[in-house]
Simulated assay, not measured.
Amino acid sequence: MTPDSPASIRPAELAGLDLLASAVVLVDSGGHIVYVNAAAENLLESSLKALARQQLAALFAMPQELEHIVAQAREHKFSDVRQELALERAGREALHVHIIASAMDRPDGAVLIELREIVQQMKQDREERLLDQSQVNKELIRNLAHEIKNPLGGIRGAAQLLEMELPPLHLTQLREYTQVIIKEADRLQTLVDRLLAPHRRPHIVGDVNIHEVLERVRSLILAEFPLGLTIRRDYDASLPEFRGDKEQLIQAVLNIAHNAAHALAARIEQGDAEIVFRTRVARQMTLAKVRYQLALDLHIIDNGPGIPSQIRDRIFYPLVSGRDGGSGLGLTLAQTFVQQHMGVIECESRPGLTDFRILLPLP
């Protein structure tokens, strides 16, 4: 058995690599694949048994580029070598990946190569950016709401006192104006309370069956839109229960589905409006910078006109709404509730299809 053979690598040396989110490949001095972790098997769409002893460079559109990178890393010209290459896939478009090659401290000249799908890396960067923005937004909203709340109480109280002091002769005529002040103050108070609600409400933890949550939302939406709208269920029955706040999750899904139903108004009139609730299990997911082996992958899909392009990047911001009369708080609250469950929420939208995806960690 040669020193470069897969058997010369002790499994204990590589066990930790299976826990990584990035695809990792180990090649010997001849560029042959010695080891791939679970993420690399997914990316290369093949098993270690099938890949072992193959030339890694042969899998790429420009094999000489990868050979050059590996040679530079092996010669320790740089601490690591980075480049973007195209990974060929039979019958499909090439997959662009970011390559990081690092020489291992081994006498056999093995090189460790990390492959990162460029789209996936952009997605993770976007999730981290959205998470940071969300935290800033929540802090701003909380402080702003408190600043508004105190003067509102004074305005309402002053209007009530003024009404009590009105002379009887003008009471009916002027009371209309004081009532406008009081009612508008109450309306703003309700808005402020909705802004503060996610931060005040205790997190009630219990066993949650996501399909019970979806069935509850389905019944509520169909009660409001009984004609012209179909809500199709595409459930994975193997999903386990998890610990969470059932009412918060109902509200989060309801807010998204309710927005979808309103966006489908034209199709509801035509009778071909559809919302799809889809559940799946996702494996090896990074959510809010934490790696989980299993996650709930929930999609809420509608066949509406899509989210207007001018607000597509800001839909989770408070007070941003795509319809007349909307408060702009529904998706903000949905995002807050999902994040309180250590999950993430994202959206893809184009005319004819809007897909809200909720990812939550599973036990």
Rank of each mutant, 00 (worst) to 15 (best):
E75Y: 05
K138Y: 13
H258F: 08
A282G: 00
I204H: 13
G206L: 07
L214F: 11
H68S: 06
L43I: 12
E13D: 11
E13P: 07
V253R: 01
D324W: 09
S102K: 13
Q293K: 10
I155R: 00
A71G: 05
L220T: 06
P305L: 04
G31F: 01
E67W: 02
G91A: 06
A12P: 03
Q293M: 10
R232G: 02
H96T: 14
E176T: 14
T354R: 00
R232H: 08
Q335D: 11
R232E: 12
N303L: 10
L26S: 07
N150W: 15
R53V: 05
R278M: 06
D236S: 03
T286I: 09
I300V: 10
L162E: 12
L298W: 05
H68G: 01
I311D: 08
L112E: 13
T178I: 09
G306N: 11
R312Y: 04
E147G: 12
Q135C: 05
P11A: 10
L287I: 14
L66V: 03
Y317H: 09
H146W: 13
L249M: 08
R200Q: 11
E65V: 15
L319G: 05
K289Y: 08
L174H: 04
A261F: 00
I315W: 02
E84P: 01
R53D: 09
I250F: 01
L319F: 15
F242S: 07
L87N: 04
D313Q: 13
Q270A: 11
R201E: 14
V34D: 00
L353V: 12
E163V: 04
D105T: 13
G322V: 04
Q179N: 13
N143E: 15
K138H: 07
L229E: 00
R218V: 08
L131S: 08
N37I: 01
V25Q: 00
V320H: 02
R323C: 04
M342E: 15
A257G: 02
H96Y: 14
T336Q: 14
G271I: 06
K246G: 04
D132E: 15
A39Q: 02
E41G: 14
A73P: 00
A159G: 04
Q189P: 07
R126Q: 12
A223E: 14
E67G: 01
A58Q: 08
L20F: 13
G330M: 00
R243H: 11
A103C: 13
A21G: 15
R126C: 03
R175C: 15
E147A: 12
I311T: 05
T332D: 02
R142M: 09
R89E: 10
A7P: 03
L188D: 02
D313W: 06
R126E: 10
D186R: 05
Q335H: 06
R232S: 14
I231D: 00
E184C: 05
S22D: 15
I311R: 06
F225V: 08
A73I: 08
A58S: 14
G325S: 05
E41S: 11
N150Y: 12
I256F: 02
H203S: 04
L43S: 01
